[in-house]
Design a protein around this nucleic acid. Structure first.
Length: 584
RNA sequence: CGGGGCGUGGCGCAGUUUGGUAGCGCACAUGGUUUGGGACCAUGGGGUCGGAGGUUCAAAUCCUCUCGCCCCGACCA
């Protein structure tokens, strides 16, 4: 491809509406343009990088036996009604006005529909079906360029199995494929335990790239390798030194509603306060009170997981109506039976606590959890950096990360509700055991840029770079320079390389700045050195190290560097192995 | 959806407080001089000031409504 007459528009100035590095650079380097919030056009440069990543994904999915197919984005709403997700996911669904269709945010329903029509016997299982396709989600807040979009390209695959063992096997194969994909894309990442959220199912892991531009927080242990999204991460909390509380009594606490205010007033440590929060499980409209140690925070995701329902904080009127007191003065003691009470295990059962009295301007002290009505105890807490690892006791670290992939063991949630059944060897009808696995392709690009960019622009891993080599022909009006550049360009093309020829009639500075911005791994500069029959070869990641190379040797040199860049990446991909089931 | 901010040539911004009929830099066009790290000079083209309504002799500027975008919070690949 030649730069002259091509659509690769670069910007000198930072776009005003971009916040993070990858977003700024994608706009500046001419990879993408925004059409609307969270909706982007991929310009030729951006699309080339996408295609490179897609190609790697396709190769690795095929390698584990995946069969590529393509399902429609337009889905009959009726199909989504079968699983109830037309309601459960209505906040993020794009629905078609005046027609009973929606734009698919994911494809469990469609896969299940295909399966129930086509799969009859255990002999046809297992299956891996995947597609690479545009998804639509009405994200309440699109952000950070391709990191969070309303329309985005996803690789989604689905496994159909007859047994749990098959599911475990295909799940592990996906983990293996994902490791290879992200490694081959040149990314640094960690695999962490994750919540399965609204997808349902028994287990899941996320692939996380450490980056300040991320929207997830991952807790991990440097000693034993424990790693989990803070949505589900567990840690061991230091016990606190309780103040002595004699007897049970009600105390007047006028206008003191926060944990801090009451703890200061009563001279009781914050940790000894029993924080009482009222939520509503939206599925059954069930009021739920959560009790948690006063210095800790509720992890709403853990609560959602436990209740298996979306939740919302109770409205102030509801709190007043159900407990007879405003928020800030509520507690478990004397709460009506209609309210489900859940205690976080962070509060010891035998230590007297202080909490709301369910009466305005009053708290009560001296009760213990062992004598309070509690329906269940569990882990509902957000962990903090420095807490001890549950596996080995080492202090945990918490880092911001970008989620680039997620794998789920779904189980039979969709096959049961949609009647995707198979006949086992004994002739019994059973629901197909499913798994689902996603990769955000755009996020691969964003992550790579976040990881490797420098002050001058993007630095692509060669495997996903829009081009492998750029020839910067300075002073294209000089016949010799033009001739050498053209010759090299055609030679490299015939060697099968992705080459970009900057043949614009621009000053050297402009071309160098653009080349840096684009981040193409290998650059050949054809300029004044042609007088000595030489060109200059540099790596984008190390522009200080310029190599003067004889023109006849230039192609060989580029081949050598290119091979080296690929080998760096491929050699680490080769080390990846399928997790052996029998070992664990 | 709650809170905050911003909409002015393609891009980045000033002008709005105190109404007087739109300006700067980049980009673009033409000519000339330059030519290995975003050149310089001259000339030129391009804007319903997000949209609608209102106040006024007069609105980018004041008022009302509305749309869009960005940021902070709850969701996800």
């Amino acid at each position: 491809m030649r730069v002259n007459k091509s659509l690769i528009p670069t910007l000198k100035e930072e776009p005003s509406d971009a916040e993070v590095t990858s977003h700024k650079l994608m706009i500046r380097a001419g990879l993408i343009r925004q059409l609307s919030a969270g909706i982007y056009t991929f310009l030729p440069f951006g699309w080339r990088a996408m295609l490179k990543a897609i190609n790697i994904i396709r190769q690795e999915m095929n390698a584990i036996g995946g069969q590529e197919l393509l399902m429609p984005s337009l889905n009959p709403t009726e199909l989504w009604h079968e699983t109830g997700r037309d309601q459960d996911m209505k906040d993020i669904l794009f629905s078609i006005k005046d027609r009973d269709f929606l734009l698919a945010p994911t494809h469990e329903e469609i896969i299940s529909d295909v399966a129930r029509r086509e799969i009859r016997s255990f002999r046809e299982l297992p299956q891996i079906w995947y597609q690479i396709q545009t998804k639509f989600r009405y994200e309440p807040r699109p952000r950070f360029g391709l990191l969070r979009c309303r329309e985005f390209i996803m690789k989604d695959s689905y496994t159909l199995c007859a047994t749990q063992e098959q599911l475990d096997e295909l799940y592990n194969l996906h983990e293996y494929a994902y490791r290879r994909i992200f490694t081959r894309c040149g990314l640094k990442y960690v695999v962490v335990g994750a919540s399965s959220g609204m997808m349902g199912g028994s287990g899941s892991q996320e692939f996380m790239v450490p980056s300040e531009a991320g929207e997830d927080r991952t807790a991990f242990c440097e000693k034993c390798g424990y790693a989990a999204n803070t949505e589900i991460a567990q840690g061991i909390l230091e016990p606190f030194e309780p103040a002595e509380i004699m007897g049970k009594k009600k105390v007047h606490t006028p206008n003191l509603r926060t944990v801090e205010e009451v703890s200061e007033f009563l001279k009781i440590p914050r940790a000894q306060m029993l924080k009482s929060l009222l939520y509503v499980a939206e599925k059954d409209d069930l009021p739920v009170m959560i009790l948690i140690r006063g210095d800790q925070q509720l992890n709403e995701e853990k609560l959602v997981q436990y209740l298996k329902s979306p939740i919302r904080p109770a409205h102030p009127e509801e709190v007043q109506q159900w407990l007879g007191a405003p928020a800030g003065f509520i507690g478990p003691v004397n709460a009506p039976d209609s309210i489900k009470i859940l205690a976080d295990k962070s509060y010891p059962v035998d230590v007297p606590f202080a909490t709301g009295a369910n009466e305005k301007d009053y708290h009560i002290i001296g009760y213990t959890l062992s004598e309070t009505k509690v329906d269940d105890t569990g882990d509902f807490r957000i962990i903090n950096e420095g807490e001890k690892c549950v596996e080995c006791g080492n202090p945990l670290k918490v880092r911001v990360t970008i989620e680039i992939g997620h794998i789920f063991k779904l189980g039979t949630k969709y096959s049961e509700s949609m009647g995707a059944l198979f006949q086992d060897s004994e002739g019994a009808q059973k629901p197909i055991i499913m798994g689902s696995y996603g990769i955000g392709v755009g996020r691969i690009l964003s992550s790579a840029i976040e990881l490797f960019a420098d002050e001058s622009g993007i630095v692509w891993p060669i495997t996903i770079a829009p081009f492998e080599v750029i020839i910067t022909a300075l002073d294209i009006t000089n016949d010799k320079i033009k001739e050498v550049a053209e010759k090299l360009y055609n030679k490299l093309l015939s060697e099968g390389m992705d080459v970009l020829l900057d043949d614009r009639d621009e000053r050297a500075g402009v071309k160098f700045k653009d080349a840096d911005l684009w981040g193409i791994p290998i650059r050949i500069t054809v300029g004044k050195l042609t007088a000595e029959d030489k060109v200059e070869v540099v790596l984008r990641r190390d522009t200080a190290n310029r190599m003067a190379v004889d023109i006849e040797m230039a192609v060989a040199k580029v081949k050598e560097l290119r091979l080296m860049l690929y080998n760096e990446i491929e050699s680490s991909a080769k080390k990846i192995e399928v997790k052996n089931l029998s070992k664990k």
